[in-house]
Design a binder for these strands. Structure first.
Lengths: 226, 226
DNA sequence: CTGTATTGTGAATATTTTTTGTAATTATAT
DNA sequence: ATATAATTACAAAAAATATTCACAATACAG
């Protein structure tokens, strides 16, 4: 879910940095706040951008619960609370207020990232799951659609599957035999030149991006975006 | 979220009983399975009813991960995994497979109930949740009615369920197999062309909006409002 | 540069899949 | 029990797609 903005609220700068570094690796954008008041201030300023808040419970000035309540008054932004272990009362309390998740300190940054990913995926839709972009050729596996530079392109079953097979094996030269075995049924006894016909059609439909399907003389084809 | 059915999968009957007692207090309906194989069996039989699964990881015969994978092949039902503490690798692994939540053993039953509540609320909306509008096609799940551009349209049971299934999976190409497994009972062995007949009727009833049900040649159908 | 093998292409043909109308069966209500 | 509605089955017609083929274009080895 790269490109999404996460607000980190914690009074310890060490902790903020730790989380920030890990989330940045996943190409999240980070905003920070060092206490509850600042958190609300930042949130109100950047309401549209912020897709998730990591909120420490124990903070000076305004604690996490108060921040949570205030934000929940007019926003459903997902919130993960960072707590000390074993605060059961608090957990129960929080779920009613719309906490999406708890992470107990000390936590493993990996798990934190995994949970952030999971929540964002859940709330803002798949994204990672089915769509893949190959230099402007977007293949949505769930919807079985292909877009080239934003324009939807109709593909028949074989065309779609052949293209997908090539693309899934980007940069790998695929023999006609292999293609036949993977895209066609195992009991297909036809001419392997059939592949060529489909390649022709796919190339045509991809327009000038058709050139990404390279011919490997004597072997077969390869998808390569350069 | 009373009245919702939860499937508890754990090999220890003591554990199942514990969870069951707590959830029953909240007026959930409970189904149980004592191992992975049974879990899948029960799930397939009661697919429509089951709103959430509590799934133990360590089980004889078929472990929680395998059950998870199998169920995820054609269902998005929320799943909470019950794990031993500190299995970090597993957690990361599971999120990718679509685990909604982890609860580490030993857990407080209160927390468990709170999380079950939270997830059900999130996934199924405040209560039964009702109307959804898809480009002028309004489906009221409580009243089981369909309106097209403000005009009420009569749908038979199958028609309604088929349309709802398509619409719930907007933009996803659904194979006839999948449709059969989800809209018809698992023990239906008839002609998969039957679907086509119902599609025909639904399209007709939807009038010019019938075109939102797209044919995916060689696969099945897809609902897409464009 | 030339000959040969391989791939590209467009059109004809074959095949597959879906649509549609209708009829048969099954369930539901009166 | 009968009527009515819903569901399922079937098969001909229609539509879409896949395959083949013949020839053109191209690449490559020598």
């Amino acid at each position: 879910m790269k490109g999404m903005t996460v607000l980190i609220v914690d009074d310890e700068s060490r902790m903020r940095k730790l989380i920030k570094d890990f989330l940045k690796q996943k190409e999240y954008n980070i905003l920070e706040a060092e206490d509850g008041e600042k958190a609300i201030q930042v949130f109100n300023q950047e309401k549209d951008k912020i897709k998730l808040i990591l909120l420490d419970v124990m903070m000076p000035k305004l604690d996490g619960w108060s921040v949570l309540r205030q934000i929940r008054q007019d926003s459903k932004v997902p919130i993960i609370m960072l707590t000390a272990r074993g605060e059961e009362q608090d957990e129960l309390f929080g779920f009613e207020l719309g906490v999406d998740e708890y992470i107990a300190k000390p936590f493993s940054p990996k798990i934190l990232v995994a949970r952030v990913d999971a929540i964002l995926k859940r709330v803002y839709g798949e994204d990672g799951n089915s769509k893949k972009d190959f230099a402007g050729i977007v293949i949505d596996n769930e919807g079985r659609t292909v877009e080239v530079d934003g324009k939807s392109v109709e593909m028949s079953l074989r065309e779609y599957e052949l293209l997908k097979y090539l693309v899934d094996n980007e940069n790998i030269a695929l023999s006609r035999d292999k293609i036949l075995n993977n895209v066609w049924n195992y009991d297909y006894y036809g001419d392997s030149r059939t592949i060529d016909s489909h390649i022709k059609k796919i190339r045509h439909k991809l327009g000038k991006k058709g050139k990404y399907i390279k011919t490997i003389r004597g072997i077969g084809y390869k998808f390569e975006t350069k």
